[in-house]
Simulated assay, not measured.
Amino acid sequence: MISAPAAQSRESARQASGQFGTQPHQEAAGVTLVPNAPSDHRLQELATARESIFHQWNDLRDTAPDSPLFETIDALHQRASVQLAAAAVLTRHPDAETLVVRENEDGENQYDILRLEGRSGSIDHSVDSPLIEGELNPGGPDLDESLWSLNLKDDGWALGIAEDISDPRNGKMFRIDLAAALGTTISTMPAAHR
């Protein structure tokens, strides 16, 4: 609440010079404000965390590939990979909601990107797009490489963050909820993989 003398002074100033009056301004065109898009700093933090887990995974793969610890680190690596992929996509496409991946058509043990979806449908699905080529953020993480970390034979990585939309024509497919994947932490990893 403003005092009466202050309100009177403000009104006098408005009438005299217009300094405190309402000023018309053009709204910014083509600008979308999205508070949940990760920053470049956050993207780098996620890439560093995933890299650290990858080194543990790589060491265990060589020394104890059949150990329960390797299974745990493998599950962590997959979740960190999906989280990094989600951050990379949302940095470039803050209006995106889901990323659809499918089993590699050439029989390689990996998932490939099929399309990116937003509220109004497909955002990017052209074969030559930077998204499909994995070159989403120049100098940033390779999206394809992140998704290649996912195990085709164990869908544990998808629990709580992706929907299985497989069909006989397209094979094994998942729709990854980008917000859920970005919100994933090691402490929210599915209990079956801890």
Rank of each mutant, 00 (worst) to 15 (best):
A88N: 06
D62A: 13
E105Y: 09
L114V: 12
A64M: 12
E71A: 15
D40M: 11
A192S: 15
E105V: 08
L90Q: 01
I53C: 11
A192R: 15
L152C: 08
L143I: 04
R119T: 14
V31Q: 07
Q23H: 13
R92E: 03
L99S: 03
P141A: 07
G139D: 09
S122V: 13
A86T: 09
R175Y: 02
A75M: 06
P65I: 09
L178D: 00
G21D: 13
L90C: 08
P38E: 02
F174G: 00
R92S: 06
A158T: 01
A192L: 10
P24A: 08
G139C: 11
A29I: 05
P65T: 10
L131R: 00
A191G: 04
A88M: 04
N170C: 04
M173C: 12
H193Q: 07
G121I: 07
R14K: 15
A37D: 09
V82H: 02
T185C: 09
P38N: 06
A158N: 02
A75T: 06
G183E: 09
Q8W: 13
S187I: 10
V82C: 10
I176D: 00
R194V: 04
F20K: 14
G171A: 10
A85E: 00
Q56R: 13
N104F: 07
V100P: 00
S187C: 02
V31G: 02
L76K: 05
A87E: 01
R50N: 11
S187F: 05
P141C: 10
L84D: 02
A158I: 00
P130Y: 10
S126T: 11
Q78L: 09
G118V: 05
L178S: 04
R115H: 06
A37E: 05
S17Q: 12
I123D: 10
Q56W: 03
A13L: 14
M1G: 06
L43W: 09
Q26G: 04
Q23D: 03
E108W: 15
L143R: 00
I53D: 01
T32D: 02
L131P: 00
E135S: 14
S149M: 13
Q26H: 06
A7F: 09
G134R: 05
P65Y: 07
L159R: 13
I165P: 01
I161C: 08
E145V: 06
S52M: 12
H77D: 15
S146M: 12
G183H: 12
H77Y: 10
G156E: 02
D128Q: 14
G118D: 03
T185D: 11
T91H: 15
S187Q: 08
G140N: 05
D124V: 11
L136G: 01
A181F: 02
V127W: 06
A6P: 00
P141S: 09
G183L: 06
L60K: 13
D74H: 13
G21F: 02
